[in-house]
């Protein structure tokens, strides 16, 4: 589920999706499970121009193909549900983006506070935690 064209200059969800895709995703994240008709109805609430059922269906099927939505068999019509919660999606995207950003800097030009490959000894981390607590107590 990788975003191919990340748009740096856009804001919010428009960074990851096209304008209509972003609104469909937002509606589904707010409602968990909806049919195409439900989504079309919700879109119309904030839109002056009428949107055809086909347009909404095409967008939702494309999002399903890309792996952002799951299509579930409903009683009358299929239900659509986001594959990940909004939080999980954003976290995954941001991790991927930062990873790419860092890869692109090249390996050598940055001095990181903590290198990604740094593996700390868990015992040392526990000792550090105790020491910090003690140091902070001494100061206060």
């Amino acid at each position: 589920m990788k975003i191919e064209n990340f748009k740096y200059h856009e804001r919010g969800m428009n960074r990851f999706f096209g304008p209509l895709e972003a609104r469909v995703m937002t509606i589904l994240w707010d409602n968990t499970e909806l049919t195409i008709k439900d989504v079309q109805h919700q879109l119309q609430l904030h839109q002056e121009k009428p949107l055809s059922f086909n347009t909404v269906m095409t967008v939702m099927n494309r999002l399903t193909e890309k792996g952002f939505l799951d299509k579930l068999p409903g009683r009358k019509a299929s239900l659509y549900r986001p594959t990940r919660s909004r939080e999980a999606f954003l976290e995954a995207q941001s991790k991927e983006l930062t990873g790419e950003l860092l890869d692109e800097f090249g390996p050598l030009i940055v001095n990181h506070m903590v290198d990604a490959l740094d593996e700390a000894d868990p015992d040392l981390l526990d000792q550090l935690e105790k020491r910090i607590q003690q140091l902070k107590k001494d100061r206060s």
Binding site: A116, A120, L125
Partner: peptide, 19 residues
């Protein structure tokens, strides 16, 4: 020390900048 601890415990960014 505690900044270092938090960064290490947060599991870092998952990037592998050093070859």
């Amino acid at each position: 020390g505690s900044a270092l601890l938090k960064l290490l415990r947060s599991g870092q960014s998952g990037a592998q900048p050093f070859a």
